[in-house]
Every structure is written in C-alpha cells, then in structure tokens.
Amino acid sequence: MKFLLKSVRQLSDHFVETNDNISRSFESVRQDVSELSDRLEKIDQDLQNWRDQELMGSDGPRREPELPVRLDTKENAIPTLNLPLDGLVDVYRNTPALLQPFARPCSVSGRTLSGAIEEIELEVFAQGTTWMIETQDGEWVLLPRPGMLQRQTQIESLGRLFDRSAEASPPAEMELIKPGFAHGVEHGRRWYLREKGMIGLHADPLQTSLERRLQALESRLLG
C-alpha cells in the first residue's frame, strides 16, 4: 500500500512538473510570437515611412503639420489627420496648403486605364491630380489637388473620380462640392474608389477680366 501511495505521489509530482514545463514552453512561444509580431510591424512602418519620404521628396518641399495629428501616427512621415470630415472640407476650401503634410498625391492606375480591372484603382504618384488623406476614423478621403485646371486633359482625368455640377473651359477654377471616398488595397499605396466626389468648374476670374477688358477696348476702337 505504501509503495502504491509513493508511486502515485511520484506520478503526480511528475505530472505537475511536466505541466509546468509545458506552460513555460507555451508562454515562451507566446512571447516569441508577440516580439516577432512587434518587429514585423516596426519593419512594415519603417518601409511605409521610407516610401512616404521618397514620395515627399519628389513632391516638392512640405510644410510642418499645423493641423491636429492623430497621436499614434505623429512619428510617421505622413501622419493621420485628426479632424472630422466637415473640418477637413472646410480647411480644403479655405487654406488647402494646410492639408499637404497629410496628403498622398495619386492618380488612376494603369491597370484601370488599360481595362485590366473593372475597379477604379488609384495609386500613389508624385505628379498625381488628386490627394488621398487618411482621417482619424480610418477613412480615406479623395480630394482634387488644389490649383487651376490649365488643360482639358486634367478635367477629363478628374471626370473618372468626380462628377461636375458646373462646367467651364480651361483655364478654370475648381470648387469642391463633395469629396470622394476610397478603401485601401495596400495601405498608403493603392486604393479602390468607393464613392465619387463632386466638383464645380468656373472660368478663371483673371482670364475673364482680361477678356472683358480686351472686348471693351476692341468695342471702343471699332466705335
């Protein structure tokens, strides 16, 4: 009986020891996986920043962010804008240059233009006609790149992404009525258009003023 009890205790002790060893092994593996995941995330972020720095260099000088940044992205080359959508649109309409530090220039991809895919795909491109901005809630907002539209091809390019509420021949001033929206395919690099925006085109006021003055001068000369 004593021998049997001793054997049972030894078996129990061995089981507890084995179970502890297995638990420690699982904990060690869990820690290794967690550390590896953190390292991969850091590498992915470093790669994203390297790409963004390269994009920013080819996009010309950038100003320091003057608008609020989402805190967990403040170290990123291109941070996330910590503004609600209506605030973003208001800034764009009044001082669009303030959005440049948050914007990735992009254009419709060659795969869409060639008909290889049905989706309207956008990809980063330093000379792109549009800006893609990530907002505080993870939304990708599509905006026309600020500036006068000097060529008809610019207007046609934007036509894939924005409906028009008013028409004008180039050179034309652009008015943002509603931004577009996209969902990410490759973070910060490629997107599919989800919802078209809307813009209005208006004749360049300086050009219109010059034309009117020339017409008035011509009328006086003919009179």
Rank of each mutant, 00 (worst) to 15 (best):
Q136W: 00
D137I: 04
D137M: 01
G138P: 10
G138R: 06
W140N: 07
W140L: 00
V141W: 00
L142T: 02
P144L: 04
P146S: 11
G147T: 07
G147D: 00
M148F: 03
M148T: 11
M148G: 00
M148I: 14
L149R: 10
L149F: 03
Q150D: 15
Q150A: 12
Q150M: 14
T153P: 00
T153G: 02
T153N: 09
T153D: 14
Q154R: 06
Q154A: 13
I155H: 13
I155D: 05
E156N: 15
S157K: 12
S157I: 06
S157C: 10
L158R: 07
G159Q: 08
G159L: 02
G159C: 03
R160N: 08
R160K: 07
L161D: 03
L161T: 02
L161N: 03
F162Y: 04
F162E: 00
R164A: 06
A166H: 13
A166N: 09
A166L: 09
E167A: 02
A168C: 05
A168S: 15
A168L: 05
A168Q: 06
S169D: 11
S169C: 01
P170R: 10
P170N: 12
A172I: 04
E173P: 00
M174T: 11
E175S: 08
L176H: 06
L176C: 05
L176I: 04
K178R: 15
P179D: 14
P179H: 04
G180A: 09
F181P: 00
F181C: 01
G184S: 15
V185N: 02
E186S: 13
H187E: 13
H187Q: 12
G188D: 07
G188M: 11
W191S: 06
Y192S: 01
Y192F: 14
L193G: 09
E195K: 15
K196M: 13
K196Q: 15
G197R: 05
G197S: 10
M198A: 13
M198I: 12
I199L: 10
I199G: 02
